[in-house]
Design a protein around this nucleic acid. Structure first.
Lengths: 194, 194
DNA sequence: CTACTGTTAGTACCTAGTACTAATAGTGGA
DNA sequence: TCCACTATTAGTACTAGGTACTAACAGTAG
């Protein structure tokens, strides 16, 4: 194979490093059949940082993301008001990652996740679990819209370890989702719990 | 402040590096008021790799995750069999990030997401949306278990733009979830679509 | 008094570079 | 044909952030 021209080599270099930032100058030199110095001149001209800097950049980026993604875990959406065993409200902003690519409509399970999370959170019990649920998507939600979910504990059957939670989700006053959640709980509601 | 004992220092060192893997031995030595050599002996004893290795590990981990997390987007769970407008099967492995910390039980919305995704996928229509759904969690699913979801298109009302999909999810033959999904679709089922 | 632990100092060496100088090969134009 | 210029290569001094090793010393316990 003929050795590439400078232009071709540099274009190729950009690609190669983007694909695998963990490659050393020596490995690159071997791959392109040129000297290490040539690779270094190329990196200079293209403003590509050295291996250690590249690795550090990748690591720092992921480190930030990790910190940000942790609090998302526990509850989908942000709880802005809660009264245990009574009611709760959360908001959820629909972003690009929540919608179908084709039509920019939010996937149902995200709206469900917000409502389900809220139903779990409003129950004053460490071991609340969803047992049954009936839901209805009344209007498609689009990317960029803010969904406000309101949960109401509508009935606590004293005989059984179940609680009903009704959740209604709105976009600007318009109902987009409603769900009735029948929740398991390990203990009955009590006034004076720690 | 008194200088810490070896034990305290080493425990503290682990914490410090875990919190900020980008710290050099020199900075650590300064922070603990000991020599760089002492820090290096500590790292030896605790098997903590050097700065560059630590950074590389963070970078490599995130690089893998990035590649892996992209395809998760479209469908929750992995579709292993599908016959459009007839039936479909997907599997979903319950990992640490899907469960409640307290009891290792999978959050309901992940099981719902798997079933809902499958219901959307089985419909032979670009614009399938969930309209209504009734679900039941029949047995808690624990971390490490593999959930197999089976979707069946049970009825297509010819007059309306609706399709019913029944999804049952199993862990080792045992039913853990079932849901009936009423799906919107933009066009009726046809035999000879591209 | 001795043995042992903990700490520090110092040296040689390593990787993957930067920054710089100098030499060489090949090409195009006057 | 010679000169100028580009591209490439070689080599040196230096850097950060280490590893691996040897040696010295202080304090404590038996």
């Amino acid at each position: 194979m003929m050795r590439l021209s400078k232009k071709e080599r540099q274009a190729n270099l950009l690609e190669t490093i983007k694909e695998n930032p963990f490659i050393t100058d020596e490995e690159l030199a071997e791959r392109f059949g040129v000297s290490v110095q040539t690779i270094r001149l190329d990196r200079m001209e293209l403003s590509i940082p050295e291996l250690r800097e590249r690795i550090k950049n990748v690591a720092e980026k992921s480190f930030e993301d990790e910190v940000k993604s942790l609090p998302i875990e526990e509850v989908i959406g942000e709880i802005i008001d809660i009264e245990l065993d009574e009611s709760a409200i959360s908001i959820f902003d629909v972003k690009a990652e929540h919608v179908f690519v084709r039509n920019r409509i939010a996937r149902g399970h995200h709206l469900f996740a917000q409502a389900n999370s809220l139903a779990v959170a409003v129950i004053n019990d460490d071991l609340a679990l969803t047992a049954k649920s009936t839901i209805r998507f009344t209007r498609p939600v689009k990317e960029g819209e803010r969904v406000v979910a309101k949960a109401k504990v509508i009935h606590i059957k004293d005989e059984k370890d179940r609680t009903m939670v009704e959740v209604q989700s709105f976009v600007g006053g318009e109902l987009v989702f409603r769900g009735d959640f029948e929740m398991y709980r390990s203990k009955k509601k009590e006034k004076d719990e720690a």
